[in-house]
């Protein structure tokens, strides 16, 4: 039999850190916990509902697709639960139930399984889900509109919207310390900077994410924002503001570092991270969207395969 399958080679990534997928997934969820709990504290039961529904439906969709495609049940590896959690962290606490259910469907089924499941997805599934929803139901992702009825005791205008429309005079009410401590409106698990940084450091130290990507992403944002700010300080916010607002920190530690959509070689990782950072600030300062993290990372996902070709030549190789 010629067509007998003897050896099946799976997709990238091949990079192995010695632990199983489930260990990685659950550690990432634990690392995200401070930021999520802070979201519960700020937005109460609405936030709990969004997160709980999002994780459970992500798993349900994965289970459904396992059954439909007659594959082995893969929900045990925790990857889909992680997708559900990260997706919920980006949403406003007032997201209606159908938005959560649709979003997790797009993330898990279209973002992940259409491309062959874990390890095969060229794009970050969470961001696919979010991007498609953002384009379809823009108003639900306008944090100013979504969070109209919350009064949490600090300036509740979405910082990135304020600076986009009013320039730096519009963001005088925000201090760097306040932003780090989560005194800003935004996604359920995306505003508590300190918590996200602690989670990120934990993941880097334990080797679950690559520091090269996170750090180059943040550096790309810092430098680009600084250049814009120096060029026109009344129109463009400073670098620290961009680091601690919007989806920057959750993007750096939890989204850009998703393994099958990011490079594995050193230089490519730096290019990938920095490219996403630069794009983020370009969208924020010049584009029509208020935040650019989602589209910037997706764009870099797209060119990731080309970037990852940049690697040291094998010794003695001809061509």
């Amino acid at each position: 039999m010629l067509n007998q399958k003897k050896l099946i080679v799976s997709h990238a990534p091949f990079c192995h850190d010695g632990s199983s997928i489930s260990v990685r997934s659950y550690h990432m969820m634990i690392a995200a916990l401070p930021a999520v709990l802070f979201g519960f504290f700020q937005y109460g039961i609405n936030a709990v509902g969004v997160v709980a529904l999002s994780i459970s439906f992500a798993i349900i969709w994965e289970l459904a697709i396992n059954k439909v495609t007659k594959r082995s049940i893969s929900i045990g590896d925790g990857n889909t639960a992680l997708i559900g959690l990260l997706f919920a962290m980006l949403l406003p606490a007032t997201s209606p139930w159908w938005l959560v259910i649709t979003g997790t469907f797009v993330a898990v089924v279209i973002g992940k399984h259409i491309f062959g499941g874990i390890g095969g997805n060229p794009f970050n599934p969470v961001l696919i889900g979010l991007a498609i929803l953002m384009v379809s139901w823009k108003d639900f992702f306008d944090f100013d509109q979504a969070l109209l009825n919350y009064d949490l005791g600090f300036a509740m205008v979405y910082p990135l919207a304020a600076v986009k429309h009013l320039g730096t005079p519009g963001i005088e009410a925000f201090s760097t310390g306040g932003l780090l401590l989560g005194q800003q409106s935004g996604g359920i698990g995306a505003t508590f900077g300190l918590g996200l940084i602690l989670g990120g450091i934990y993941l880097i130290v334990r080797g679950f994410i690559r520091w090269e990507i996170s750090i180059s992403f943040l550096a790309g944002i810092f430098i680009t924002a600084l250049l814009f700010n120096l060029n026109n300080p009344t129109l463009h916010a400073g670098p620290l503001f961009h680091l601690f607002t919007g989806y920057t920190l959750i993007g750096a530690f939890f989204l850009a570092s998703e393994d099958s959509s990011s490079p594995v070689n050193f230089i490519p990782m730096l290019i990938y991270g920095a490219g996403a950072g630069i794009m983020t600030v370009l969208v924020r300062n010049l584009g029509s969207y208020v935040d650019g993290v989602v589209f910037a990372i997706l764009l870099m996902n797209l060119i990731n395969p080309i970037v990852d070709k940049i690697r040291p030549k094998a010794l003695g190789k001809v061509v």
């Binding site: 489930s22 709990v48 709980a52 529904l53 459970s56 139930w97």
Partner: peptide, 21 residues
Amino acid sequence: KELKLAYSLTIILLVVGVISY
């Protein structure tokens, strides 16, 4: 065990989610 954990997580969170909403 992993599978059991995932099933319990789903059921508990589904209930919590529906009640919260």
